[in-house]
C-alpha cells in the first residue's frame, strides 16, 4: 500500500472525527501536525488511532501508542509497521 494511499484513507477517517475542522483537511501532507496544524485535542489521538486500526485492519500495541508522534507521517509509518508485523 502506497504512502499517499494511506494518507488518503487517513483523511477519510479524519472527516469522521467531530473535533477536526474539515477545512483543515484540504491539503494534508506527511508533515501536517494533528495538534498544531489541525488543532486536534491531544485527547482525540486515541480515538483517531482506534478508527485508523479499523479502517486499515491493523492492530496497534500499547507501546505503539505511547510513542506515537503527532504528525501524519508518524501514523503512516505506524500503519506500515503494524502491517509488516502482521505479515512477518
Amino acid at each position: 500500500m502506497e504512502r499517499q494511499e494511506i494518507i488518503d484513507g487517513l483523511v477519510e477517517v479524519l472527516r469522521t472525527v467531530r473535533t477536526v475542522d474539515p477545512a483543515k483537511l484540504e491539503n494534508v501532507t506527511e508533515e501536517t501536525d494533528f495538534l498544531t496544524d489541525m488543532n486536534t485535542p491531544s485527547t482525540e489521538l486515541i480515538n483517531i488511532a482506534a478508527k485508523v486500526e479499523q479502517k486499515f485492519n491493523v492492530e496497534f500495541e500499547d507501546e505503539d501508542i505511547d510513542e506515537l508522534g503527532s504528525k501524519v507521517k508518524d501514523i503512516v509509518d505506524l500503519i506500515i509497521k503494524a502491517k509488516e508485523r502482521e505479515n512477518s
Binding site: 486515541i46 488511532a49 482506534a50 496497534f60 500495541e61 500499547d62 505503539d64 501508542i65 505511547d66
Partner: peptide
C-alpha cells in the same frame, strides 16, 4: 454505590 460501565478499553486507556 458507583455503577460503572466500560465503554472503551485499549492501549491502557
Amino acid at each position: 454505590v458507583n455503577i460503572g460501565f466500560i465503554k472503551f478499553y485499549k492501549w491502557r486507556q
